[in-house]
Simulated assay, not measured.
Amino acid sequence: MSENHPWEYSLYIPNDPRAVTICRRTLRLILTMHGLIRMVDLAELLATELVSNAVRHTKGPAALRVRWSGGGVLRLGAWDADPSPPEPPQPFDRAVDREDGRGLAMVRACADVWGWQPLSREGNRGKYVWCELGVA
């Protein structure tokens, strides 16, 4: 079973709201094929929030990155071409009733850890917003 071996996938997407659904379905397939079906529902929720933020708040392409440590930690991340920091998450109880602003509040409430980092590669700038889930 591949649960014990590390692996990583990257799915590059256009700035198109339909790409969020493609990411969610691709993530479900990846986790199912790697024997991590028990993580699918929460991972889908968090990846959807991360990728939605990347598509909604930036103008360029984005990417979903999925990495399994092999030691029980799943890292989900969204890359986008905008180097600006993400908006700080609202307290979860205030963010739930709003249509926007829920993403990082949901990530902060449901993930074991989360963060973001600026990226620069080959003259391109951007950021990577990530979260991790451990197998309980």
Results as ranks from 00 to 15, higher is better:
Ala109Arg: 09
Val51Leu: 08
Thr58Asp: 07
His34Gln: 04
Thr26His: 03
Leu76Ser: 02
Val73Glu: 13
Ala95Gln: 01
Ser84Phe: 06
Gly71Met: 05
Asp16His: 03
Val107Pro: 02
Ala62Glu: 03
Asp80Cys: 04
Gly60Thr: 02
Ala43Arg: 03
Glu132Ser: 11
Gly77His: 04
Ala62Arg: 01
Pro85Tyr: 07
Thr48Cys: 13
Ala47Ser: 11
Asp100Gly: 13
Arg94Asp: 11
Gly70Trp: 10
Asp41Gly: 14
Gly72Tyr: 06
Gly134Pro: 03
Ala54His: 08
Glu3Gly: 14
Asn124Trp: 14
Trp114Cys: 04
Tyr12Asn: 12
Ser10Tyr: 10
Arg18Ser: 15
Ser2Trp: 15
Asp41Leu: 05
Asn124Val: 12
Gly60Pro: 08
Ala111Tyr: 01
Ala62Asp: 04
Leu74Phe: 08
Leu50Pro: 03
Asp100Arg: 09
Gly71Pro: 01
Trp130Asn: 04
Arg121Glu: 12
Val129Tyr: 07
Glu132Gln: 14
Gly70Phe: 11
Tyr12Trp: 11
Glu99Met: 06
Leu50Cys: 09
Gly60Asn: 13
Val129Met: 08
Tyr12Ile: 14
Val107Tyr: 02
His57Tyr: 15
Asn4His: 14
His57Trp: 13
Ser10Gln: 14
Val66Ala: 12
Ala62Tyr: 03
Gln90Asn: 06
Val135Thr: 13
Arg108Cys: 05
Ile22Ser: 08
Val51Ile: 14
Trp68Lys: 05
Asp82Arg: 01
Ala109Glu: 15
Gln117Leu: 08
Glu132Gly: 10
Gly60Trp: 08
Met33Ser: 13
Met39Ser: 10
Arg121Phe: 14
Gly134Met: 13
Leu76His: 01
Leu42Gln: 08
Gly115Pro: 11
Ala62Phe: 05
Ala78Lys: 00
Pro118Phe: 02
Cys23His: 02
Leu29Ser: 15
Glu49Asp: 12
Thr48Tyr: 02
Leu45Tyr: 01
Cys131His: 00
Lys59Gly: 15
Ser84Glu: 12
Thr48Gln: 09
Arg67Ile: 00
Ala111Val: 04
Pro6Gln: 07
Gly101Pro: 00
Val73Gly: 01
Arg25Pro: 04
Pro89Leu: 04
Gly101Asn: 02
Arg38Asp: 15
Met33Ile: 09
Ser2Lys: 09
Leu36Pro: 00
Leu50His: 05
Ala105Glu: 06
Ser69His: 08
Gly134Arg: 11
Thr48Gly: 15
Gly134Lys: 08
Val66Met: 08
Trp130Pro: 11
Leu64Pro: 04
Trp7Tyr: 13
His34Asn: 09
Arg98Pro: 00
Ala63His: 03
Tyr12Met: 12
Gly60Met: 09
Pro85Asn: 06
Arg25Val: 15
Pro86Ala: 02
Arg56Gln: 13
Pro89Ser: 07
Leu64Lys: 00
Gln117Asp: 12
His5Lys: 09
Asn53Gln: 07
